[in-house]
Amino acid sequence: MDTTSKVPAADQTLAILSHLAAQRGPVPAATISQSLGIPRSTVYHLLAVMAERGFVVHLPEERRYGLGVAAFELSSGFSRQQPLARLGRPLVASLVDRLGESGHLAVLHGRDVLYLVEERAPRRPSLVTDVGVRLPAHLTATGRAMLAELPPAQLRALYPDRAAFASRHPSAEADAAEWTYGRLKRVLAEVRAHRWAAEDGEVTPGLASAGAAVVDHLGWPAAAIAVTFPDDAAPELRERVAATVLDAASTLARRIGGR
């Protein structure tokens, strides 16, 4: 059943909110109308109602509309309820059961990844990727998977110079010096070509990881799922891990209404 034809005002309201959320700043009502194909009078009516409820704010001097405090509260509620962690945890647990290796789910936070879910496989090496831990995104499989989905301008803003590339190992100066924006772009090009990201001993010597991004409906990397295994694993295991991680990431993307 096509519910949008049953409740067109609700569909149009959500379309306007989604459109505003995807913009860099407030936009005119006429632009919203043209972009979404909604009559201008309808757009003004819906914006007025949303403004009364605090979901949008009107900037009269600029004749533009942006998201309001109520929309921010929805975002905060999303964070409090941790749906990514709730939806992702059983998928990661299933990965661990199937592969016998440890798995995790992380989100991008600036130039770091923040781990939300960690499922340890029995009798496997201990990991630093515990819940709440942050690591440099460019060094991790989850981070690379998500960075590969960012627009070029956003990626460049995150890594404006060599100083942006943090290190984890004792030879911090030497390791950081090896990273440049050009190298990062080459690494991320490989990620896009394969659709999954790899890291090999850059987080913990002796361990490797494969990760895949969870992309939302706006094309933004909402999270990433990865599995960590010994770096001397047979090629067959690496291929199996990559395929299984890709499948889990795709499943989680569908569950959050993404791509």
Rank of each mutant, 00 (worst) to 15 (best):
R120F: 10
G100I: 01
A121G: 05
R98G: 00
S94G: 08
E101G: 03
E101A: 04
R111M: 10
L135Y: 06
R123S: 14
D97T: 05
D130I: 12
E119G: 07
A121L: 04
T129L: 09
S94V: 04
H138L: 08
R123A: 14
R124G: 14
T140F: 15
G110R: 08
R111S: 11
R120S: 12
D130N: 14
V113W: 05
L99S: 01
L116N: 04
D130H: 10
P122S: 09
R111C: 09
D97C: 04
G110T: 10
P122W: 15
G100V: 01
L127P: 12
L108C: 03
R124W: 15
E101L: 04
V96Q: 00
E119Y: 08
L99I: 02
R134I: 13
R134Y: 12
R111L: 11
T140V: 11
T142N: 02
P122C: 12
D112T: 15
G103Y: 02
R120Q: 14
V107I: 09
H104I: 06
R111G: 14
G110H: 14
D130S: 12
L135A: 11
E118K: 08
R123L: 12
S94W: 05
G132L: 13
H109W: 12
E119R: 11
D97G: 05
G103A: 05
A93H: 00
V133K: 14
V96W: 00
E101N: 04
L114T: 09
E118P: 07
L116A: 06
R111D: 10
V117F: 02
R144F: 02
D97K: 05
V131C: 15
H109S: 15
A141C: 07
V96R: 00
L108V: 03
D130W: 12
L99M: 02
E101R: 05
V107A: 07
